[in-house]
């Protein structure tokens, strides 16, 4: 599963470099996510801008990695393509995930907020 993780102060960006998160790769997605975030702290922005399609297995895998982060850390989504957005909306997951149009902008906004409060 082609993914990479960039750890920044207080936040990490997980970029998925695959077109699909479906039943074929759902377990690989979970395993790779777990490996990449292990040893880091803070919230994670999942950058899905390259992902054209998810099925219910992919959705389940995203929920599973959200749980993996535990109660103290947040998982936020960014760059949802139309079919992915449709699945998130249908299942009402868009009401419980913070969703950003762009991962970089989301991270920058977070950085700015951190500076403003310090």
């Amino acid at each position: 599963m082609n993914m990479d993780f960039e750890s920044r102060p207080m936040i990490g960006i997980m970029k998925v470099r695959e077109n699909r998160i479906d039943s074929r790769v759902a377990i690989a997605f979970k395993d790779r996510f777990r490996d990449l975030v292990s040893g880091s702290g803070g919230d994670v922005i999942l950058d899905l801008s390259r992902v054209d399609f998810i099925d219910s297995s992919g959705l389940g895998a995203i929920i599973a990695v959200r749980k993996l982060l535990g109660s103290e850390r947040q998982l936020e989504l960014a760059g949802l393509q139309p079919a992915v957005n449709k699945v998130m909306t249908l299942t009402r997951m868009h009401t419980v995930f913070a969703i950003h149009t762009d991962a970089e902008a989301a991270a920058a906004a977070r950085g700015a907020a951190i500076q403003a409060t310090s």
């Binding site: 099925d55 389940g60 009402r92």
Partner: peptide, 26 residues
């Protein structure tokens, strides 16, 4: 019907049961 999602506790979110409801709503 779609699985219920407890908005206050992510650790209780369902990981499955979405497939048929997605199909039926499309």
């Amino acid at each position: 019907v779609f699985p219920q999602i407890a908005d206050d506790d992510p650790l209780l979110w369902p990981e499955g049961g979405f497939g048929w409801p997605i199909l039926r709503s499309m």
